[in-house]
């Protein structure tokens, strides 16, 4: 297992191999992403029953929770890439940081905006400075910080390492976001989807929510891979394989 992982790691560490293998994956992952996301959202919007207290406004959950969860997971992935970039100075890891940050920031923004829109009819306010909402806002700023660092430093390798450090350190905030509703009292409720015990939602709501979540993860993966591929081509633009690759396909 370990050896297999190590081999995989070295292979994916090569930009050319990464470019080739993801090129083979993407034609499959794209339709899968679109289908799952579409199915989850349509199911949630039109077919799931309303909530006994919130009525139909709860349908915002089908984007709010998946977006928030993908934003958090994406940040952890970016943190891992940051660690690899700092310690092993792997080019591919630097590229991944740059590819993850923009859509991660978008997802964090979506979670915040849909949360505010949902909060108005249910809580009676768009925003309060409670632990969950504030730490989620910090997550958005961390994403924006990673993007800003990338843009501020001209040398791509130095930019990658600086952004990597912020990505690694920022993972602390992911832990805070996750546990904020348990550590402090807040307006935000606890989590509905639970790993270790039964989720506090009936299957006719939970199923579309989980499908939509899978859809968001897949879409995130697709966008990251395409952005990473563009970045690979750009950084390797003087390499022969890139020239050949681009002259083959007109």
């Amino acid at each position: 297992m370990w050896n297999w992982l190590k081999k995989w790691y070295h292979k994916l560490g090569s930009p050319r191999y990464f470019y080739e293998i993801t090129g083979a994956w993407l034609p499959w992952v794209w339709p899968l992403a679109v289908l799952t996301l579409g199915a989850g959202l349509v199911w949630g919007l039109a077919f799931a029953p309303p909530d006994y207290q919130q009525g139909n406004s709860y349908r915002i959950i089908f984007i709010h929770v998946p977006a928030a969860s993908a934003a958090l997971l994406g940040y952890v992935a970016m943190g891992v890439a940051g660690l690899v970039a700092l310690v092993w100075r792997m080019k591919m890891a630097e590229i991944m940081i740059k590819a993850i940050a923009p859509f991660g920031a978008t997802l964090a923004a979506i979670a915040l905006i849909t949360g505010a829109i949902w909060g108005k009819p249910t809580w009676g306010t768009w925003w309060v400075w409670d632990a969950r909402l504030t730490s989620m806002l910090i997550l958005l700023f961390l994403y924006l910080g990673v993007i800003a660092l990338q843009n501020a430093i001209t040398d791509p390798r130095q930019a990658g390492r600086a952004a990597g450090l912020l990505a690694v350190v920022g993972v602390i905030n992911v832990v805070i976001v996750k546990y904020s509703v348990q550590w402090w009292n807040s307006l935000h409720q606890g989590s509905t989807i639970r790993m270790t015990e039964e989720s506090t939602m009936p299957p006719e709501m939970l199923t579309p929510l989980l499908i939509s979540m899978a859809g968001f993860y897949l879409l995130f993966a697709c966008i990251v891979l395409v952005n990473a591929r563009s970045e690979v081509l750009w950084r390797e633009r003087r390499a022969n394989w890139v020239r050949r690759e681009l002259s083959n396909v007109l």
Partner: peptide
């Protein structure tokens, strides 16, 4: 006055 709601969802 703000309403806090819990994490339980249910069909009516």
């Amino acid at each position: 006055v703000l309403a806090k709601h819990d994490e339980e969802y249910m069909a009516p």
